[in-house]
Design a protein around this nucleic acid. Structure first.
Length: 281
DNA sequence: TACCAGGGCCTTT
DNA sequence: AAAGGCCATGGT
């Protein structure tokens, strides 16, 4: 099921036919990998990606990307929603493992997103020792404070240059505590070219992680999240407190070797399952 | 090595 | 109502 070949321009946007079994909006957009999506009262989701607004709604088995074009599909949505990956085949492979089978049965509609690298660094710096509702609040206040207004109360994520011009006092309204200094360090390094997305992308994963960790506030876990969610490094396996519990309880002998090349994708199903089955841990 | 730093939302007690 | 924990990291 590769949606890229099936996408259709319709009157109100772009239709991804029959993709809902491998793309559940709530499971994908609200599972703790991305922080700029908001559920609307009608069940649709609204957010901003690469400075572009988008609303998504499920229509039966189809997903409608509202009020957007094929040009934007090629420029942004195809890659962002990982639409070139065959999730049906991925899940079939995962199902050989009984634990993953259970996690996939619980949330079969998770996709792992390819987010904008700079935004990914920032949002996962903010995520450190934090909870998802508060992370979302901080990110939205940051966008509103320094991001380009896009109308409808939405804002682009701020550029490194814009954030680098800010002072710690400027960031006080974010109420993100000590993370403010880390954000400013990230902005300085990106704005100066000391760390850039192309430079990270060009490096093997261990060296890419090391370059990211030259930013204050980026340790191994945040680096892994950035590489997985911002650079499509599917082998990266962020080890947060939930995944530590998952490994201790469900994988005492470690992850099956066969899963290692896509361990990060497995991680997202396991993370979501664990967070919603706290009684098991 | 151990502890603490801003802050606040959610869960458990 | 109060306490504890949270998609951690850096500084002391």
């Amino acid at each position: 099921m590769i949606a890229t070949d099936d996408v259709r321009q319709v009157a109100h946007g772009l239709l991804l036919p029959s993709i809902a079994p491998c793309f559940d909006l709530a499971q994908t957009l609200d599972c703790g990998q991305a922080f700029r999506w908001a559920a609307q009262p009608d069940g649709s989701y609204r957010g901003v990606v690469m400075g572009q607004k988008l609303s998504l709604v499920r229509l039966g088995a189809d997903i409608l990307l509202q009020d957007t074009t094929l040009a934007d599909y090629d420029r942004v949505w195809r890659r962002y929603f990982d639409l070139d990956r065959d999730y049906a085949a991925l899940k079939t492979g995962f199902s050989a493992d009984p634990v993953l089978q259970e996690a996939i049965t619980y949330a079969p509609g998770i996709r792992v997103l390819w987010q904008e690298p700079w935004e990914t660094v920032c949002t996962f710096i903010i995520s450190a020792n934090n909870n998802i509702p508060r992370i979302k609040g901080i990110v939205e206040r940051l966008a509103a404070l320094l991001g380009e207004p896009l109308g409808d109360g939405l804002f682009a994520f701020p550029t490194p240059q814009r954030l680098a011009e800010a002072t710690p006092e400027d960031l006080a309204p974010l109420r993100c505590g000590y993370r403010a200094a880390f954000l400013l360090d990230a902005a300085t390094k990106f704005a100066s070219g000391q760390v850039t997305a192309p430079a990270v992308a060009a490096l093997p994963t261990p060296q890419a992680a090391a370059l990211l960790m030259s930013i204050k506030g980026v340790g191994p876990k945040v680096a892994d999240c950035t590489l997985l969610f911002g650079f499509g490094r599917a082998e990266c396996f962020p080890m947060d407190t939930w995944m530590k519990k998952v490994m201790a309880v469900l994988y005492p002998g470690g992850l099956p070797q066969k899963l290692l090349p896509v361990a990060g994708l497995a991680q997202q199903y396991l993370f979501h399952y664990a967070r919603n089955h706290k009684e098991l841990f």
